[in-house]
Simulated assay, not measured.
Amino acid sequence: MTGADGRDASLARAVRLREDGLREEARERLVALSARFPDDAEVAYQTAWVHDTLGLEGDAVPYYVRALAGSGLSADDRRGALLGLGSTYRTLGRYPEAVATLSGGVTEFPEDNALKTFLAMALYNVGRAHDAMRLLLTVLAQTSDDPDLIAYRPAIEHYAMDLDVVE
């Protein structure tokens, strides 16, 4: 076996099971692997992810937290863990925690529009609709290839700063 006592091969098999739609079997393997390697951020992230895919958001949270507290995640996995945890907090109605997590994610990965979009949803949930609209309109203006929107990009970006402005 390669890796720490077969960790690499076991993790790869479990991820493959999840990707193949055998999520419950993947979950069982990942929970066991996580128990064997409690300080392994990558194993914790994959374990959180499989719980999310099964609709077990509450069970995913501690694994996401463990993954983000550890080291060894690639930048892509760290971004995914921040998005996953923030989105999971929002799904569970833990809106302030969602805003904090997703805000941290946007600070760490300022170009990630998925993080910004989920942050906008969480901002809405905490009653910050103005900030949510500003963020979404900015993402829309900067990323849309729709010719109808491109023509109005400067106006959308202008109004994104303050929807209440009267000129």
Rank of each mutant, 00 (worst) to 15 (best):
T2L: 05
T2R: 14
G3I: 10
A4F: 14
A4R: 14
G6V: 08
R7E: 14
A9H: 07
A12W: 09
A14E: 13
V15S: 15
R18F: 12
R23Y: 08
R23N: 14
E24M: 10
E24K: 02
E25K: 13
R27T: 06
R27Q: 15
R27C: 13
R27S: 12
E28I: 11
R29P: 01
L33S: 05
A35N: 03
R36T: 11
R36D: 15
F37P: 01
D39V: 05
A41L: 05
A41W: 03
E42H: 08
E42N: 12
V43Q: 13
A44Y: 02
A44F: 06
Y45M: 05
T47P: 11
T47H: 12
A48E: 13
W49G: 06
W49L: 15
V50H: 03
V50K: 11
V50C: 14
H51R: 00
H51S: 02
L54N: 07
G55M: 15
E57F: 01
E57W: 03
D59L: 14
R66F: 12
R66C: 05
A67E: 13
L68C: 13
L68P: 09
L68I: 05
S71I: 02
G72E: 13
G72A: 06
L73V: 04
S74I: 01
S74K: 07
D76S: 08
D77A: 10
D77N: 12
R79G: 08
G80Q: 01
A81I: 04
A81Q: 04
L82C: 07
L83Q: 06
L83D: 09
L85K: 12
S87M: 03
S87D: 07
T88Y: 08
T88I: 04
T88S: 06
Y89C: 09
T91P: 03
L92E: 07
R94V: 00
R94S: 06
Y95A: 03
E97T: 06
E97H: 01
E97C: 02
A100K: 00
A100I: 03
T101G: 10
L102W: 09
T107I: 06
T107E: 13
F109T: 12
A114Y: 03
A114V: 03
L115C: 09
K116I: 03
K116W: 06
K116C: 00
T117E: 14
F118Q: 14
F118S: 11
L119V: 05
L123V: 10
Y124C: 04
G127H: 10
R128G: 00
R128T: 00
H130V: 05
M133G: 00
R134D: 03
R134G: 04
T138R: 10
T138E: 07
V139T: 14
V139Q: 06
Q142H: 07
T143S: 15
S144K: 02
P147V: 01
P147W: 03
D148H: 02
L149A: 04
Y152W: 00
R153W: 02
R153A: 00
P154A: 11
P154C: 11
A155C: 07
I156K: 01
I156D: 00
E157H: 00
E157T: 02
A160D: 06
D162R: 05
D162A: 06
V166L: 03
E167A: 11
